[in-house]
Amino acid sequence: MSEIILSANGLTKTYKQRTGRFGFGTKLVKALDDVSIELKTGKTLAVVGESGSGKSTLARCLLQLLPADRGEVFFQGNNLANISGQALRDLRRYLQMVFQDPFASLNPRMKVGEIVGEGLLIHRLGNAEERRGKVLRMLERVGLSTADMDKYPHEFSGGQRQRVGIARALVLEPKVVVCDEPVSALDVSIQAQILLLLKELQQEMELSYVFISHDLRVVRHVADDVVVMHQGRIVEQGGVEALYSTPREEYTQNLLKAIPGRAKQHSLVT
């Protein structure tokens, strides 16, 4: 039994949605409805679901980027939902996020070296020289070069930008990284590179990942445990092999059946 590094208990989040003519009416939408998850140390927990299932809201509530209405989030014994201010800011160093859109999530006016080094500066880690060294080593580790430090995000391709996003998150040596659809905007060849990079870094740095994705083929490759969400609720959860081979819930079965190309692969195997 491995240790639990991050857990959520009964997370609930409700949004108000404007409805009716000119948006005069309001409707309450439950984006998260009593969601509880556990992330094991050094493992990957994938959260899958279709658009509107609440998976991105869960990612944001876990990191306290959005306040949940109810529920607790425990990280190394601290209830993140209760602490605030400086204590939460100090912990944030260990809780990082890799975003979906490598085009929108990097500040276009900052050089890559500044983007990656900003976290070190905020957390006052090391002096200028040490920070520069760390940024350089991190960039090299994700497959970029020294010369890239002085470039702006627009000078990079989508895959390279995602590498910058990963370097930015990992330079702080976090413990938990929430990846929100990190490869869904990328071509399949670049996707394979980034998935392998994430896996290598996980082993080297002993990272635990929460991996949000709608692509069940990608999830099969990266996850140890899987949570299936639908309309703000957890439909089913379990180990990745059991869940893919013997899904219990009808919703999960339908989701797996809808993976394109499955029929052909099966006919080939048999």
Partner: peptide, 18 residues
């Protein structure tokens, strides 16, 4: 090479970047 990058639903395949 491109086919080697495509993840399969069974997770049997080793992904290989181009």
């Amino acid at each position: 090479a491109l086919l080697d990058c495509v993840p399969d639903a069974e997770g049997k395949k080793q992904l290989k970047p181009i």
